[in-house]
Amino acid sequence: MTLSSFLGPAIGGALIGLSAVLLMALNGRIAGVSGIVAGIMAPLRGEGRADLSWRAAFVAGLIIAPLIVSAVRGELVSVSTPHPLWMMALGGLLVGYGTRLGSGCTSGHGVCGVARLSKRSFAATGMFMSTAIVTVFVLHRLLGV
């Protein structure tokens, strides 16, 4: 890993950590994206629309950010999806279902929960990291995707 390929991840990671801290310090909330999005969809489930505005604002920020980086770089940030479309669809379904059943995703468990030294988040993070690595191993090394 060269210094320049290390800097992006290091700075980007620090920004993710900083935003987790700020959302707690200012809004008193865990910066867990799956939980925040599920809250936005609460009216679809026939529940109240409490906290809709801050949740929607957070998501808007997420969506705008890559455009700012693209504008600064003078080219659209690259997003490439190496796996077939059906895997994106099945993957999305499993990520959505799994993060609700498991009460969190990479941000809520992997960053916020682990930083709070939550036992549940350590277990969840260990679990999703392991199954993700096994899945890619099976796809690439055994099935030749």
């Binding site: 999305g92 799994g98 498991g102 941000s107 277990a123 969840a124 679990m127 199954t131 993700a132």
Partner: peptide, 26 residues
């Protein structure tokens, strides 16, 4: 639910290469 949910999430993450934050940003 925590263990099963997280296991399924990981499988979906490996299949797609996306978790909720990056997917929404992208």
């Amino acid at each position: 639910p925590l263990i099963i949910g997280s296991a399924l999430f990981g499988i979906g993450w490996g299949l797609s290469g996306l978790c909720p934050g990056p997917a929404i940003s992208a």
